[in-house]
């Protein structure tokens, strides 16, 4: 949505670069949000340093809503793979690095789940309208 597609999602997706120095601030941020894992059994499981270092996907609920923290998306697209198609946007005074539509489309094509395919038309159309001018009528 930040890049212009009229689509929203229930969860914010964050891709992080797994480096030792990145894990403590990530864990601090998750704790500040009161993050806990989505657990079908209803257990209260919270992120810790060991989980961040060893799990690749963290599906969380927080005080601000659902949050997915991942090392890769699509077919193994990592932070380094994605960085070239990102831009920093200032949203409500906060600078956030947002993934571009082209790579969002690519990741959804690769994931190829029903919910991904359902969004592809609008994503592709938004990208087309961002890139090209409207055709002259008549």
């Amino acid at each position: 949505m930040l890049d212009g597609a009229p689509l929203s999602t229930l969860a914010v997706d964050v891709v992080f670069l797994r480096r030792d120095e990145n894990l403590p601030p990530l864990l601090d941020a998750l704790r500040a949000l009161g993050a806990r894992y989505v657990d079908p059994a209803g257990r209260h499981i919270v992120p810790d340093a060991d989980k961040l270092a060893n799990l690749r996907i963290h599906r969380l609920v927080t005080s601000m809503g659902a949050l997915d923290v991942m090392e890769t998306i699509g077919h193994g697209l990592s932070y380094a793979d994605l960085l070239g198609d990102t831009q920093v946007m200032e949203v409500a005074g906060v600078k956030v690095r947002v993934l571009g539509l082209e790579t969002i489309i690519l990741s959804k094509e690769q994931a190829n789940r029903d919910k991904d395919r359902a969004t592809l038309h609008l994503l592709r159309r938004t990208l087309q309208m961002k890139k090209g001018p409207p055709a002259q009528a008549g």
Binding site: E102, I105, R124, L127, Q128, G132, P133, Q136
Partner: peptide
């Protein structure tokens, strides 16, 4: 990717 987003004018 790219088949629909080539920068051409769109109707």
């Amino acid at each position: 990717l790219g088949t629909e987003a080539d920068g051409e004018p769109y109707a």
